[in-house]
Nucleic acid binder design. Structure first.
Lengths: 198, 198
DNA sequence: GGCTATCTCTGACACGTTGTCTAAGCTACC
DNA sequence: GGTAGCTTAGACAACGTGTCAGAGATAGCC
C-alpha cells in the first residue's frame, strides 16, 4: 500500500495493470450478460484468482460499478458519433433511443435490479453523461417548440429511461419482436414529449 | 405431513392457521416497507421463531410472493370500490392511477428489485388481476375512440407500470413532491395513450 | 544480471443469511 | 386424557462475500 495519499511508494507494475484490465473485460462480458454471476466466475473468465479480483476491486459492488462505468463510456462514445447536436431535436431523440436501445440489448445488466438498486443518487451520477445529452436535447426541442414544455426535462428523462426498461422487459419476456417493441418505444416517447410524429 | 395428496391426515390446527396469518401480517408490514429485511426480523415481528416461518412458507421467495399476493388483493378490492366500469375510460384511468399510486406509496416493496426480479412471467401472473382491469379499460377507451388504437393494450399496460415506477423513484429520491410527480405521471400516461387532456 | 518491491496464487478462515434437521415440550382437539 | 400436530431450542450444512498470511513468481530499476 502507498504511504499517505500523494506520496507514490515506488510505481505500479505493468502486470497489475493487465490483470485489472483482464478482470474488467471479463466482468463486462460476464456480468453484462448475467448480472447474477458470482465473483468466482468473473475471475475464472479473466484467468485469475478470486483474490486477485478483490485486489483490484475491493467489493463486488464496486466491480459492478466499474462495469457500468465502462458501458457508459461506450454509450457516450456511440452518442458522440451519432451527434446529438445536428438535425431537429426529434431526429436526435430517435438517434438517442436507437443507440441506448442497442446497449440495453447487449447488456442485460442495465435492465437488472442490482443496477437500479444502486439508488437514484448513485445511479444518476453514473449515467450522468448519457442522461445529460438527453436532457440537453430535450431542452433544445422544448425551446424550439418541437416538444411540449409542460413537463420538466428531468421528469422526461426518467420517463424515457423507464419506458426503455419496459421495452427491454417486453423483449426479454419474448412477447413481441425487438423491432415491434422499438417502434412502440419510439412512438410512446414521442407522445410523452408532446412531439409531432415524424 | 399428509399422506398422498387428497388423503387428509387428520386436520389442520387452529393455532397453525393463526401463526401463518401472523407471519403473513408481519411480512406485509416489514417486507412491504423494508424489502431487504431478513426472515429473522419478520419472525420477531410475528412473535414467532424463524423455523416457524419456514414451516408455513418454505422459502423467503415464496414469502415475498405471498406478501405481493396479499397486497394485490388489497389493490383489487380498492379498484373494485373505485369501479373501473363507470364514467369515461379516461376518468376510470385516472382513478386506476390514483389507487395504484397510493399502494406504491404504502408499499415500497412494489418498487423494489426483488419483485421485478421475479421475472416477467411470474410477475405478470401475480398482478394479473390488477393489470387485467387496466387492460380492460384501455380496450374500452380505444373502442370508444377516447384513446388512440395504434399501440397495443399490452404495451400500454407495461408502459403505464414503468412510468409508475419512474414516478415512485422520483419521489423516493426526494427530487420533487408527491403531488407534482403524480400530476406528471397522469399527464404522461394520458399522452402515451393518445388521450385528450381532461 | 541481480536485488527488491510488487503481484499472484494457495489455502485458510470469519461472517451473515438461507434453509434443514432433530429432539423436546406445549396445545388443540377428538 | 391421549394423540397428532405445532412450536421451540439448538444445532448444522451450504453458499457467497470479504479478509488474511505466507510462499513463489516477475517486472523494473540499479
Amino acid at each position: 500500500m502507498s504511504e499517505i495519499a500523494g506520496r507514490r511508494s515506488r510505481r505500479r507494475r505493468s502486470d497489475a495493470e493487465r490483470s485489472a484490465a483482464a478482470v474488467l473485460d471479463a466482468a463486462v462480458q460476464v456480468l453484462g450478460r448475467q448480472p447474477d454471476a458470482k465473483v468466482e466466475q468473473v475471475a475464472a473468465t479473466a484467468g485469475v484468482t478470486r483474490q486477485t479480483v478483490y485486489a483490484h476491486y475491493p467489493s463486488r459492488t464496486l466491480l459492478v460499478a466499474a462495469v457500468v462505468d465502462h458501458i457508459t463510456a461506450e454509450a457516450v462514445a456511440a452518442l458522440d458519433v451519432a451527434d446529438m447536436e445536428s438535425g431537429t431535436a426529434t431526429e436526435a431523440l430517435l438517434r438517442w433511443l436507437d443507440v441506448t436501445w442497442r446497449l440495453f440489448d447487449r447488456y442485460p445488466l442495465l435492465l437488472h435490479p442490482s443496477v437500479a438498486a444502486a439508488g437514484p443518487a448513485e445511479s444518476d451520477r453514473r449515467h450522468a453523461a448519457v442522461v445529460e445529452r438527453l436532457e440537453k436535447l430535450i431542452r433544445r426541442g422544448q425551446a424550439a417548440g418541437e416538444f411540449d414544455g409542460t413537463l420538466s426535462p428531468a421528469w422526461l428523462v426518467s420517463a424515457t429511461i423507464a419506458l426503455g426498461h419496459a421495452a427491454g422487459g417486453e423483449v426479454a419476456a419474448g412477447r413481441v419482436t425487438t423491432e415491434q417493441t422499438a417502434a412502440a418505444l419510439r412512438h410512446s416517447v414521442l407522445r410523452v414529449y408532446g412531439a409531432r410524429e415524424p
